[in-house]
Computed example of a mutant assay.
Amino acid sequence: MPAPLAGRRVLDLGALCAQRPHALAASMAAKLCAAYGAEVVRPLPADGEPFASLPPLLPDGASALHRFLNAGKRPGPATGWFDAAIGDGAALAAHAAEVPVKARLSVFGPDEPDPPMSELGLAALSGLLGIVGEAPPAPPSRLAGHQVAYSAGLATCTALLAALRAGGEEVVDVSLLDVTAWLNWKVAAGVMVIGSAPVRGNAKATWFTVKARDGYVALVYQDKDWPPLRDLIGDPRLLEEPFITGPGRGANRAALLEIIGPWFAARTRAEITAAAQARRVPIGPVKYPVELLEDAQYRARGFLAPDGTPSLPVGWDGQRLVREVADAAV
């Protein structure tokens, strides 16, 4: 099956973007284009690849972020014909004025000034930061990785594909804040339905990670799962108030953890998972990164290469594209 962007040339201006969120989002969008078969060219600034020294770092000191985002791309100048270009407004104006299809990233949109912004700032402005972490007065927690920028990259690639499919000349605009707000759609839904936005309330939450003998397990369950979970643990105190109802367990979270904690701590993650699955209780192990290389589901999906590089489950017409790409030599 031919790749849908085979024969197309895409200009990745992520390395020339002025701000980190724009750079990450543009680079992710271009990576997706490469997975769809495009030839992706990535011009670099005079001081070289900006991601080359960014964490997470591999044992040899190289950047895993750089290896992931730039695999399948070719460093080179912004010369010749390109079908599409991806970057912020300034990079597109300077290097892609003649490119027919442009994907332009900004914080608020093309008609607003682009202020200094980080992914943490986007999470705060969108309200996403307000629901991650323990309840106040504890500080909010930062999302791991680059979920905000990568989501903006996915949105950018989707818009770019639509513009290329339509043909002609077009500038598609992607607001980083709009994408982050969409990720946090429950805030808007909460305001519409109950008149207020959700806030961090983990002090009363009954979903948490619990220490096992060899690590941690994630305890995520609904009210219907409580009776089999309670019976699995087998402590008679769980049959009494205040642990009979969900609100009661939430309001007495510390006491609940004191009761159930020893049961989990005495067993391995595998033992806990098997016992929970036998009762259809949704408990799963928290795995260490090295364990993911041998994870049965990841192996079946081909998600991780032997060296740990994640692939992308890119599909076209219901089929997964298989395209061998080499790491960019930058």
Rank of each mutant, 00 (worst) to 15 (best):
I283G: 00
P198V: 06
V191T: 12
A30W: 05
D327L: 14
A328T: 13
A6H: 15
L293Y: 04
E294I: 00
S141I: 08
K31D: 05
L24T: 04
A152F: 12
G248D: 03
E291T: 03
D223S: 09
P113T: 09
F68W: 09
F51S: 10
A90Q: 15
D60L: 13
P139I: 09
D214R: 11
V281G: 01
V99D: 07
G14D: 06
E258S: 06
A203W: 09
A15S: 15
P59E: 05
V199I: 06
E98K: 07
M1K: 13
A78R: 11
T156V: 02
A38Y: 05
R249L: 03
A159N: 04
I260K: 04
I260V: 15
P137S: 04
R323V: 13
A203M: 03
G109I: 11
M117N: 13
R323H: 15
A3V: 08
V187D: 07
S151M: 13
V286A: 13
I131H: 10
Q297H: 15
L54D: 11
E258K: 07
L69V: 13
L176I: 04
Y221M: 12
V172W: 01
T79H: 10
L292P: 01
P262W: 02
A218T: 09
V40I: 02
Y216H: 14
N184P: 00
P139E: 03
L177G: 02
L128V: 01
P228G: 01
L219F: 10
P227D: 07
A15Q: 10
G201D: 11
